[in-house]
Nucleic acid binder design. Structure first.
Lengths: 341, 341
DNA sequence: TTGAAAGCGCTAACAT
DNA sequence: ATGTTAGCGCTTTCAA
């Protein structure tokens, strides 16, 4: 351990310090090839003593291999994505691959930029949220010549491989459960995000199934920004003032659903008999509410794990699963806010 | 735009396609040096048409510059850190630097590993949470020869520069407010995390100030894992059963505080008169609760912004602010759960 | 304004 | 088991 230096150390420094060729030093540090125990120890000791940190840039250029996996998601604030990331990290930790995260804020232009930036580091694979990408993004992904796994959604044509759930189906399932339970006057609340394709697809599936049962959304409202819990509360109050005869509220995420739930409880309204409620995501965070909100889990952890496994497998044996679509099944939890039939 | 290829394109491909030397192509693509408008357009067009993505690995090796800033944090699930990241991204977006995130799960060994991994990509700076690091980590940071900003905490000796709040002081401030408000029988609930130094420091400051006022924590409990909201609820119930005469509950984070709040409200207990409550963090997420929880904000966004600005400035002009400590002032919000004096 | 040559720090592919 | 050589794809530097 020596004092702060301007020039970072190179293999050569370790080579000189240990009296062994650069090549052998390189072999020791990568545990590659046969090196005698004595030499190995000499080298390790020298590297440790100097505080040598290998230069992956040079290594990557020479070997043409980069052990990074680009993970591109819309947001970190959403709860959902950190959980997907956990699944990815967990699986990649057993390999020599490393996730690198990029965030798009649901903006296609930003996605394009982040993707370009990450691809320019020549990662070994890409895991990217959603099936909707700009032409340029699709082109880059196609050109990259690496495994590309699109996650979260399966309603569409994957570039290469997809792992997720069908959000249309998720919307349909929830609508069916609500109709079966006998609710008729249904209100919807969600985020004002034209670019959140998955929320849009859930909404489409939801309204289609309602329509099939002769039901039309009785009221709806979209918000953006602010605290979701507070927004759920406010929107619920406003909507019930506007449309007092609603008997069910479907929220596009659990957080606003929780806000609505708290509001209704304060008003002493009978849940789920007078009004039923449901959200989406099965956010564990919210366990501990006065009543468990009906919800539908999006298989976040499993999606991350599966995607990572696919990338890892393709890197290991080059097995080509291209075109594969892994469609997971979301499960509905009725909680205490969706009345039994 | 052409079909998927095995070998990624190189500058040479663009050079040949545009009939211009590699060197000039390089200049165009980096907007460096003088290139005639005609040539520039020719090159741009060729690059676009081929779908060329520059190889940053080669570029970085040649130029000895990498526009990445390593950001090392304990967790993404904590709410707090995504917000710090927002502050960092926001500021770095106006520069040519890019954040790259690594997660340590509060484990020193993992921090060491992540740090080593990231430093081996030769980033232009490091932003790392906390002031407590292993000897090896400190050595690497010192050796790296790049700006190092330790964030979140200012109670300790920074390696280079620190930006954060004093958690000891935060604990003291909260204790003072509670004592002033006349509460006497105080219970504490927190996470069982010996390695969360900031939580520990808050607790120390808190108990010290109580002691100074002749008060000792009347009961305390630590949890790990599970949903924080549910844990807050359960622990509150258990603690009040065990120690019924408590008149104040201090929670080490807002999420468990919210759980406690919901429980007490259901029990019809008068908050803040019969029992007062306070959390920590000022999580915006929780606005919308029946009562606003007293809390103390940790200046998360500002910490991120300031840290990023320091790294960016040092990269721009090499100005050396080493040893600087930026100590931000957390503000106490009394909410509705801490009675006025 | 453009081009040619020489490396950046490492590893693949061959020696030995 | 160890060493030598020749690049990886760019950018820096110097020349034209």
């Amino acid at each position: 351990m020596q004092t702060r230096s301007k020039r970072p150390l190179t293999l050569r420094d370790v080579s000189e310090a240990s009296g062994v060729s650069e090549m052998t030093v390189s072999r020791v540090l990568r545990n590659k090839g046969d090196v005698s125990a004595v030499t190995r120890e000499k080298v390790r000791e020298a590297a440790r003593r100097l505080g040598y940190v290998p230069n992956k840039i040079a290594g990557a250029l020479a070997s043409q291999r980069v052990n990074l996996v680009a993970v591109i998601i819309p947001s970190l604030g959403n709860m959902v994505f950190p959980e997907v990331l956990s699944g990815i990290s967990e699986v990649l930790e057993d390999t020599d691959l490393q996730p690198v995260v990029g965030v798009t804020d649901y903006q296609p232009e930003k996605e394009e930029k982040v993707l370009f930036e990450m691809l320019s580091w020549r990662p070994s694979g890409v895991i990217i949220a959603g099936l909707e990408h700009s032409e340029a993004s699709r082109a880059m992904l196609l050109q990259a010549g690496i495994p590309v796994v699109e996650i979260m959604d399966t309603d569409g044509e994957p570039i290469d491989t997809a792992v997720g759930i069908s959000h249309r189906r998720a919307g349909r399932m929830m609508a069916e459960a609500i109709v079966e339970a006998g609710y008729k006057r249904i209100g919807f609340m969600g985020t004002k995000m034209p670019l959140d394709h998955r929320a849009r697809k859930r909404f489409e599936g939801f309204t289609q199934t309602l329509a099939k049962n002769g039901i039309e959304i009785a009221d709806q409202e979209f918000y953006s920004g602010g605290s979701a819990l507070a927004k759920g509360r406010e929107m619920t109050e406003a909507m019930l003032k506007r449309t007092p005869d609603l008997d069910f509220l479907y929220f596009s995420n659990d957080m606003i659903g929780a806000g609505g739930l708290l509001y209704l409880q304060e008003q002493g309204i009978d849940i789920p008999n007078k009004i039923g409620l449901a959200g989406f995501n099965g956010v564990e965070l919210l366990e501990g509410l006065p009543k468990r909100l009906a919800s539908m889990d999006a298989c976040r952890l499993e999606i991350g794990q599966t995607a990572a496994r696919i990338v890892a497998a393709r890197n290991a044996d080059g097995a080509s699963d291209e075109g594969q679509v892994v469609d997971l099944s979301p499960t509905l939890s009725r909680g205490d806010t969706l009345r039994k039939i």
